[in-house]
């Protein structure tokens, strides 16, 4: 494999990895706070992509406006979802909340099939994102391939600022340590949890929109696989840790692209890599790369 080819693969891996990272952040934040795997997170991604599709096709909005509206719509959906399906189960056994999450996920998917129909639809790609760009020597990539990691870096920067430099961020970190004490300290826990869902959903929608640019079609089940893989990325990075989610997402992107690049005969098994990685991580380092060890209370 030539150096040019290798660099090209690196760029592709970085793009895919950034998309996983953005989704993984939502999983890791919700899990850090509620100890809940938000199964419907992948479907938020799909809804975000569909909103852009309808914004550009049905209303004729420019792509940028449609993207912002879609992110707003998806965050609203995330908040509603938390309010309706998760908040009443806050004190229930954790598995009940998980089943509720699975039900919500199927609800969103089947509603999408009813409303948007099950047919995959092509997505409009803005001209300036799909033109080729010569990076260096023979390495030529689409502008999109550079745009996705850059956008991801900006979004993660904003997120880290919110989590580590603002009051709501402080409250979020407090809740993830101990929800009851935080409540006693006068924090409106429910609002902060809703805010967490809002941020997570916004990032998932951003990822979904860029996903739809890179693999230019939308369909109601497009969120399932990226969602599951991003969850695996979050576990790999150490669930509950935002930096871990980013590292895990990028690492998963590299694993998938590079294994197929170096061993093309394995490409049929591509979807299985992530799960093999998951099993290995859970067996040898269940806390992930950056996760904290959670002591079991008796």
């Amino acid at each position: 494999m030539s150096l040019d080819m290798f660099l090209q693969h690196c760029f592709n891996a970085l793009t895919l990895g950034s998309l996983y990272a953005l989704i993984a952040i939502g999983y890791t934040m919700v899990y850090g706070i509620l100890r809940l795997i938000n199964f419907a997170h992948g479907d938020i991604l799909m809804v975000g992509a569909y909103f852009v599709f309808f914004g550009t096709f049905a209303f004729g909005w420019p792509w940028g406006i449609a993207a912002i509206m879609a992110i707003a719509g998806a965050s609203l959906l995330g908040v509603v979802m938390e309010r309706v399906a998760y908040r009443p189960l806050r004190d229930a056994p954790r598995i009940s909340a998980l089943i509720s999450a699975i039900a919500v996920s199927f609800f969103i998917e089947s509603l999408a099939v009813v409303v948007f129909t099950g047919q995959p639809r092509p997505v409009l790609q803005p001209e300036w994102l799909v033109s080729e760009w010569q990076v260096w020597g023979g390495v030529r990539i689409l502008r999109l391939t550079a745009f996705v990691p850059a956008m991801t870096a900006v979004l993660v920067g904003i997120l880290l600022y919110i989590v580590y430099r603002t009051k709501p961020g402080l409250a979020m970190r407090a809740i993830s340590k101990d929800i009851e004490t935080t409540r006693l300290l006068g924090v409106r826990v429910d609002n902060i949890i809703a805010f967490t869902f809002c941020i997570g959903s916004a990032l998932a929608a951003a990822s979904g929109i860029m996903w739809a640019l890179r693999y230019p079609q939308v369909h109601p089940y497009m969120g399932i696989m990226p969602g599951l893989k991003a969850f695996i990325a979050a576990v790999f990075g150490g669930i509950g840790s935002i930096q871990g989610a980013v590292i895990g997402g990028v690492a998963l992107g590299f694993v998938e692209i590079m294994t197929v690049a170096f061993m093309p005969e394995l490409s049929g098994y591509r979807d299985a890599f992530a799960f093999v990685l998951l099993v290995l991580v859970l067996l040898f380092k269940p806390t992930g790369l950056l996760g904290e060890r959670m002591e079991e209370k008796i």
């Binding site: 969850f231 695996i232 299985a272 992530a274 799960f275 099993v279 269940p286």
Partner: peptide
């Protein structure tokens, strides 16, 4: 033998992963 060392929701995801691996194996 490997996954039953995990607790509740991790076990759920790991078994889901294995079901998916079985499906990929069947396709290939």
């Amino acid at each position: 033998v490997p996954v039953l060392r995990l607790g509740d929701d991790y076990l759920g995801i790991a078994t889901l992963g294995f079901a998916e691996i079985i499906r990929v194996l069947i396709v290939n």
